[in-house]
Amino acid sequence: MTSMSEPSPHAEALAEVIAARQAGDPERARDLVLRLVERAPDDVHVAYQAAWVHDLLGLEADAVPHYVRALARPGLPAEDRRGALLGLGSTYRTLGRYPEAVATLEQGVAEFPEHRPLRVFLAMAQHNAGRSKQAVESLLTLLVETTSDPEIAGYQQAIARYAEDLDRTWPSS
Rank of each mutant, 00 (worst) to 15 (best):
Y155H: 12
T146N: 09
R131E: 12
E111A: 12
A19F: 08
R168W: 09
A61H: 11
A50G: 03
A15I: 05
Q157T: 15
G130N: 05
Q107I: 05
L32D: 00
V144T: 10
V53Y: 03
E111T: 06
M4Y: 11
R93Y: 09
D43S: 08
A29S: 00
Q107R: 14
L142C: 05
V64S: 01
L85G: 06
V46L: 04
L88V: 05
K133V: 13
I152N: 02
Q157P: 08
R35S: 15
L57D: 03
A163P: 00
G58R: 01
L88R: 01
D167Q: 10
L59T: 10
G75R: 02
H10V: 06
G58A: 03
R131L: 10
P99I: 04
P77V: 06
R73G: 14
E137Q: 15
L32A: 02
A29P: 05
Y162D: 12
V33C: 05
Y92P: 03
V109W: 03
L88C: 01
A160F: 01
F112I: 01
A63E: 00
Q126H: 07
S148N: 09
E151R: 09
E79N: 08
R82C: 13
R28H: 11
A123T: 03
A19H: 11
T2A: 12
A19I: 07
T94D: 13
S138D: 07
V68D: 11
D31F: 10
L166H: 00
A125L: 06
E145K: 04
H115R: 12
R168T: 07
A129K: 00
S5T: 11
F112T: 02
F121E: 15
L76G: 06
L14H: 06
T147R: 01
Y155E: 14
L14N: 01
L140R: 00
V17Q: 04
A160E: 10
P26M: 06
A84V: 03
G154A: 07
R82K: 13
G75Q: 00
H127K: 11
A135F: 02
A158T: 14
D31N: 12
S8A: 04
D55G: 13
T91Y: 03
